[in-house]
Design a protein around this nucleic acid. Structure first.
Lengths: 262, 262
DNA sequence: GCGTGTGAATTCATTCACAGCC
DNA sequence: GGCTGTGAATGAATTCACACGC
């Protein structure tokens, strides 16, 4: 369906499959950790393990970006960090506004992961006059009356919606009208937007429901294995049979330190 | 690859494709909204629009569950709500623990979307002794020393990790050892878990990076259309040419026209 | 006639396996 | 010898289009 218009070439643009784009940030994080440890090069096998994917997929993903590796050796960490950052558009600064400063909005405002990449919280916006001026995570909250002005002045093109579901569409409309073309939506609603605007959503309860589905499966499937999985592993199930959330069994603690700001 | 073991049939189990499972919660939300409005039946076309997907996909999805519709008429709302709930395992109660009660954990604790489905916050757990006993969203925080006891007593099988990345793996290990078999991870780390444990992750900064990628595309692509999309829609771009955030990649979202401001 | 349900066709993603280069 | 880069093979998800039942 969509609106007749191709809606958006999505992948076509310059050939990088959407699934690959979604994994680039993962690689980037693993690479950043390696970089901080001053590891000069890494093989597809190692990097894949750190990112929780398998190496064939990783190599295929990188092949869409170009030939940045060296056969028989691996990838230069610094160089790859740069290439992926560039591809993702993180070499430039992206001002972001967060609308709806409840618990979630406050958590987002204080989230280190934003600042650490090219994102900068340009403004926090809330409709509650009592919030106005109050600093959250060091940034004073502004009133939603000024939303349009703020977006225009700061040249914001990415907006985060952390409001209650009831007002999410209205907020979205105002953001879009003011010039925002990418939206990250935390409200449990389907947003409709004009063509050319990207929306991604994060929905907590949906994730839980998916887990519940699989959980139910497990319970019903093994009629013999009723011995409470708890008993299986005495204390901490060490490496041996562990598998990273993806596929390949990951080394013991080999994982990247993942210090990542809190 | 994988650990030799089938790792997890993912889809195979009883034939429902993973992509379909991920959309069921969307349909459910849209249906619940219809139900509250006492709408008796709905067509695939209408429901699809409300859920932000296209109708062919929706019909195919439902066909995996069985034939619950009536040709020439549509689907019975109440009946479908029940069938999907059952399929997702929401007809039973799922106690959930949230570990790490910072801003994010607090936001999760107070999130209405949990309680509204079959999920019940059984406990909030934090390592900071200063937090112990303090009520968050009406639930007293417990100390992480008691993690194993809490999980055993309440028969918790789903855990939510909202801790800093540095301790996420340790927390995960303890949860798993105590009997948790499904984990929702908000920490920006790859968790490794033994076979048979499901992990889903929600990563805020990754979502933003994906948006940045597309944003960058837009900027570079239209050398002619520099007229700021802001000007396009004077105030609120109404339905007409709007498209719901469908064709997007990952998971769409669902809910009826939000507020129906009317 | 209308709208579901579904095989068939198509598009997209992952995995295999190996040629090519260091 | 080891590891990348990639065509070819497989598998999953989406879309098409229409037969079928109400």
């Amino acid at each position: 369906m969509a609106t007749g218009r191709t809606h958006r070439p999505a992948t076509r643009s310059r050939g990088i499959p959407e699934a690959t784009v979604a994994r680039l940030p993962l690689y980037l994080r693993a690479l950043t950790a390696l970089s901080e440890r001053s590891v000069p090069t890494v093989s597809s096998e190692e990097l894949a393990a750190a990112a929780g994917v398998n190496s064939a997929k990783l190599r295929k993903d990188f092949s869409y970006l170009g030939s940045y590796g060296t056969r028989g050796v691996g990838y230069d960490v610094e160089y790859l960090v740069y290439q992926i950052s560039r591809e993702l558009g993180l070499t430039q600064d992206w001002p972001v506004v967060i609308v709806g400063i409840g618990n979630l909005g406050a958590a987002l405002a204080g989230y280190g992961g934003f600042a650490s990449r090219g994102f900068r919280v340009a403004a926090l916006i809330d409709a509650d006059p009592a919030m106005t001026g109050k600093p959250v995570a060091g940034i004073p909250v502004q009133h939603s009356d000024d939303l349009e002005k703020i977006i225009a002045e700061d040249g914001v093109s990415i907006g985060v919606i952390a409001t209650p579901a009831g007002v999410a569409q209205q907020v979205c409309d105002r953001l879009v009208a003011a010039g925002v073309t990418s939206i990250l939506n935390f409200a449990p609603t389907v947003l409709s937007v004009p063509d050319g605007v990207d929306v991604r959503k994060v929905d907590l309860s949906i994730e839980l429901q998916i887990l519940a589905f699989h959980e139910q499966r497990k319970a019903g499937e093994e009629p013999g294995d009723e011995s409470a999985p708890a008993a299986a592993a005495p204390t901490v199930p060490q490496a041996a049979t562990r598998t990273t959330a993806e596929s390949g069994r990951k080394g013991p603690d080999g994982d990247v330190p993942a210090v990542m700001p809190a």
